[in-house]
Amino acid sequence: MKISKISIYQVDLPLKEGSYSWSTQTFSAFDSTVIIVECDSGLIGVGETCPLGPSYLPAYAEGARVGLAKIAQGLIGEDPIQIGKINERMDELLKGHPYVKSAFDMACWDILGKATGQPVYNLLGGLLQDKVTLFKVVSRQAPDAMAAKLSAYQDQGFKQFQMKVGAGANSDIDRIFAVSEVLRSGNILAADANTGWRQHEAIRVVKAVRDVDIYIEQPCLSYEECLAVRKHSDHPMILDECMDDLRTLIRGYNDSAMDVINLKINRVGGLTKARQFRDLCVSMGITMTIEDTWGGEIATSAIAHLAHSTPKGYHFQSSAFHEYHSLEIASGGPKIEDGYMIASDRPGLGVTPNMDVLGTPVSVIK
């Protein structure tokens, strides 16, 4: 089986609630890139990469499409189910830029699943969880508005939450107190600064909310700053943006820098490398949030398959990004019910792209 055609699509994902705010950034829609890989056997695979704006990580939507077009010509004629070789070839064609390669790697796993008649979770380790625990994001707003949203989400059956902070220590302390007051017994809340605090601000916050039952997520930009905050706090710590390679993961383990890590598929380069990351975490006893930066039904399906194949004791929570959008880019996305999601058991990722929504490709490589 050989790759015969690669099509690249751009689609904007508008948000149901109108906007999404975290740290100091606000968006009303996210620019996503979808790739469709066609084979001479007739099989097709789909992948998606959706950076969270251009200044969140070293990744941006236009760069994803340019990068994919750059490597696509060198992948025509390759066997997509030889996924290790595909990843080696992508690294030969383009140094770095893991968020670019993630979409193509995802599409190859989709093809492998279809070629073998297996859902991707079977290929990633088997169905170790029947359903995937979700967390709901509480976008950054005024404290009372955030508290009201969390109450509404609890009524919908969600039990784990990530509130967005990082816009200033004083206002964030107020936000944490307001939201935590309406958190129901047994539910879980994290305050995610998305690198938005300076070290001195983060230390002020964790001291001010010392008695609040809350996780603190990625308070500062650098690993070193987060480690310093960790030493001033009794709160469980989640590290996210700085966990970008296996070396940092091992360093964090040796430094006892975190209690949970956030594993984002496109930040590490796709499902292949995310599985490596996941398996090392399990070997070292590290619990994970498994998600991606953003995306629609395709990216969310990849999240669900990786989470389904992760031992329950090491899986903290995941995101279902497609539930935040008013546009369906593919059918067959994970089903959501009572704070959980379940991936399709169809071969591959189980999704079918909605071509009427994707429209005309921005690039076609044959």
Rank of each mutant, 00 (worst) to 15 (best):
K2D: 10
I3N: 08
S4P: 04
K5M: 06
I6V: 15
D12P: 03
L15E: 09
G18Y: 04
S23M: 02
T33N: 13
E38Y: 03
L43Y: 14
P54H: 04
S55T: 14
Y56I: 01
P58E: 13
P58D: 13
A59M: 08
E62H: 12
K70F: 15
I76R: 07
P80S: 07
G96S: 07
D105V: 11
C108R: 06
T116G: 03
T116E: 14
G117M: 01
G117L: 08
Q118A: 15
L124G: 02
G125W: 02
G126Q: 14
L127D: 02
A145Q: 15
A145M: 09
A148N: 12
Q154M: 11
Q156A: 14
Q160Y: 06
F161P: 03
K164I: 00
G166K: 03
R175K: 11
I176T: 00
S180E: 10
A190C: 12
E201N: 00
V212Y: 07
V212E: 10
Q218R: 01
S222W: 03
C226L: 01
L227V: 15
P236C: 10
L246H: 00
R251K: 15
N254Y: 13
S256L: 11
M258V: 09
V260F: 09
A302M: 06
H305M: 08
S309P: 04
P311D: 11
K312L: 13
Y314I: 04
F316T: 00
S318D: 04
E328Y: 03
S344H: 05
S344W: 04
